[in-house]
């Protein structure tokens, strides 16, 4: 069994295993630490939004760390709301708010963290929602298509396809848009097609009910790994209904 430690978070006694991240232990104990670039779906966190900063005190020495990736490896005291943490978190939040003036979520968070006053001097980007948390890139990579990435560096960094061109790897699955915390990944959809990352996809529909299943490419991509070799284009709801009907027939419930 892994070694366990008795630690305190904001004075509350908590138990954790060796190597557990502060953020995870805090949440298990009902202590909320804000985070933007952290998602439960991924084991590795990018630790780039820097909102989840906390202070750790080990043997009388305090330091600021990123709670989503800081592993607990000894007895320690953690402070998620110390004066220093609140100050630095509000500066980081104000920076994000200036970056993404169009994101309601970010503006709301900034207000709650009192990062909306005292920073009027900061310049705001035009029409920006993206906070460059990189979750979209992580989702795309995790799915195995790797169609988008962060490009450029420094203040010019952005998320895009290679050379901003239509990318053959993209399957139009919308994973990137769905995981985005600020809704900044734009896509257009009509009855027949979906356009995202400068690429237009044909939509496929359920043979039974006519509901949109997804893009042709994403359907093919998902089917590649599926054990089911039934070629019929059927949506999840209809599949479930078919199984339920079969069960009902078997038990003569109808």
């Amino acid at each position: 069994m892994a070694k366990t430690y008795e630690i305190t978070i904001d004075g509350k006694k908590c138990t954790c295993e060796h190597g557990e991240y502060i953020w995870d232990v805090a949440h298990r104990n009902g202590i909320k630490i804000p985070a933007l670039c952290r998602h439960d779906a991924f084991g590795d966190h990018r630790a780039c939004c820097r909102i989840c900063l906390v202070e750790v005190e080990i043997k009388g020495r305090r330091k600021v760390v990123t709670s989503c990736v800081y592993p607990i490896e000894c007895e320690c005291d953690i402070y998620t709301k110390s004066e220093k943490v609140l100050e630095e978190r509000s500066v980081v939040m104000a920076l994000l708010a200036a970056r993404s003036p169009e994101s309601e979520k970010i503006q709301g968070m900034a207000k709650r963290m009192e990062a909306d006053t005292g920073f009027e001097r900061l310049i705001k980007l035009d029409n920006e929602k993206c906070i460059l948390c990189g979750l979209c890139v992580q989702a795309c990579n995790a799915l195995g298509t790797g169609a988008i990435s962060t490009v450029n560096r420094g203040t010019d960094k952005e998320v895009s396809t290679p050379y901003d061109k239509e990318n053959i790897s993209c399957i139009g699955c919308l994973s990137c848009a769905n995981v985005c915390p600020t809704g900044s990944i734009a896509f257009e959809e009509d009855a027949e097609s979906r356009t995202i990352w400068n690429k237009k996809f044909e939509l496929v529909k359920c043979e039974k009910c006519g509901e949109v299943i997804g893009t042709k490419e994403s359907y093919e991509f998902a089917k590649k790994d599926a054990k089911d070799d039934n070629d019929a284009l059927v949506c999840d709801a209809c599949k479930k209904k078919a199984i339920a009907d079969e069960l009902a027939a078997t038990y003569r419930l109808a």
Binding site: C49, V92, L96, L132, N152, R153, K157
Partner: peptide, 18 residues
């Protein structure tokens, strides 16, 4: 540094910009 920061984390990228 604005050009040479990797641009990954908020304080460095946005802080330097400001």
């Amino acid at each position: 540094l604005c050009e040479e920061s990797c641009g990954k984390c908020t304080p460095c990228r946005e802080g330097l910009r400001q």
